[in-house]
Amino acid sequence: MRLRKQALGNRNLIGAKVEAARKSKGIKQKELLAQLQVNGVDMNASGLSKLEGQIRSVTDIELVALADILEVSIDYLLGRE
């Protein structure tokens, strides 16, 4: 497992929660990317890495798809629970 080289950014609220939920379910980034594709969200590995590192903004469509795939609420991803 590679460690993050950059400090967390401030472009989104959900990155750390997405990473934590993904890891708790034992899903690799590549698998999450495949699930996003199935759900109509076109994202590459760099985009997901930047999203989890809070370096990239998140669209509402991506937010909904991530919550559905990771089986968590949008409120959880936004830190409201």
Rank of each mutant, 00 (worst) to 15 (best):
L8Q: 11
L8C: 05
G9P: 10
L13V: 10
L13Y: 09
I14K: 05
K17E: 10
K17Y: 13
K17Q: 12
V18C: 09
V18L: 07
V18G: 09
E19N: 13
A21R: 13
R22L: 08
S24Q: 15
S24Y: 08
S24L: 12
K25R: 15
G26W: 11
G26L: 11
G26R: 07
I27A: 01
K28I: 06
K28R: 14
Q29I: 08
K30V: 14
K30G: 02
L32E: 07
Q35H: 13
Q35Y: 12
L36S: 07
L36W: 06
L36R: 08
Q37S: 11
Q37G: 03
V38T: 13
A45V: 13
G47F: 02
K50V: 00
L51P: 04
Q54P: 01
I55C: 00
R56K: 15
R56Q: 14
V58F: 04
T59W: 04
T59H: 07
D60G: 13
I61H: 11
L63T: 07
L63F: 06
V64S: 04
A65M: 10
L66P: 12
I69A: 06
L70I: 07
E71H: 10
S73W: 02
D75C: 01
D75P: 01
G79W: 01
R80F: 01
E81Q: 09
E81Y: 01
